[in-house]
Every structure is written in C-alpha cells, then in structure tokens.
C-alpha cells in the first residue's frame, strides 16, 4: 500500500534524513513529493511511503521518535461540491490523472493518487479546489 504524510521539521532536525531511516531500518519506499524549508530551517515535506501497512506505521512512529511531527494526509485535495460547476478546467492540468470525468461528465477527484502538487487549484475559476496541507 501507499500512504502520504506531512512531516514537519525545524532547525534541530532539518539536516536529518527521514527517507534514510525509512529505507534502512524498515525497507520502505519513501518518495518526497514536496519539500519546503524556510530561512529559519523550519518547514515541511509531503512524503509518499510504500510498503505494508504495519511497517509503514512502525516506520512513521520511528520518524516521530526522531523529533519530527508526522501527520497522515487524507483528503488533502478538497473539492467543495457545492461550488463546482463541473466545467472540467482542472482535469488536464493534473499530472497524475487524479481528476477524471465520468460518462455523465461529472468530475471525480481521486484522493489516493493525488500527490498534492496544487496544479489544479489555480485552474479552477470558482475556488472549489483547496489543498489542505
């Protein structure tokens, strides 16, 4: 399985390697989707982790022990259904094809494959899409 986490760091642990811990100690496959460090050494990254569920839980618990703040990401791309007028403008700008059109031309967002890149957010003319990270 694959799960996504927001890992927050600060100047005390920004130089450590979360990915190394996950690979070396747990044989997991981490993938950094987004990383952001501000001038004061604080920031966060969005991490996709693949492996079996139990190992992922153990691995991320270990990351927390190392002093990082770990938040599992669910529904990180949020579509406000009441606002969406199903124009479709967000569909082809999504690099992971997480936004699709069904046979009745309804717009469907797959939260599982979304990598939280944010490309769709400014393609939407009614601010129906919001990235929650």
């Amino acid at each position: 399985m694959e799960r996504k986490f927001k890992v927050t760091y600060n100047e005390s642990n920004v130089q450590g390697s979360v990915a190394y811990v996950l690979v070396k100690e747990f044989d997991l496959t981490p993938n950094v989707l987004k990383a952001n460090i501000t001038g004061d050494g604080c920031g966060f990254m969005v991490l996709s982790v693949s492996g079996d569920e139990e190992t992922i839980n153990k691995g991320m618990a270990r990351v927390e022990e190392c002093g990082y703040n770990v938040e599992p990401m669910v529904n990180h791309i949020h579509k406000e259904e009441a606002k969406c007028w199903e124009c479709g403008a967000c569909v082809a700008v999504c690099p992971t094809k997480s936004i699709t059109v069904d046979k009745d031309f309804h717009i469907i967002v797959d939260y599982n494959t979304c990598i939280a890149c944010g490309s769709c957010v400014d393609a939407c003319s009614v601010k129906a899409l919001r990235l929650v990270i």
């Binding site: 479709g88 967000c90 082809a92």
Partner: peptide
C-alpha cells in the same frame, strides 16, 4: 481526454460544463 499532434499526446479538457448543458 487526449488528442495527438505530430506524434505527441496532448491532454484535453473542457472549460464549459457539459453536465450543466445537459
């Protein structure tokens, strides 16, 4: 969902609502 131009695939999307038009 996509068209081809000189051998390259281009993804397409609508800007008007077909479900709304229906």
């Amino acid at each position: 969902g996509s068209i081809e131009y000189e051998g390259k695939k281009i993804r397409t999307s609508s800007l008007s609502s077909l479900s709304g038009a229906r």
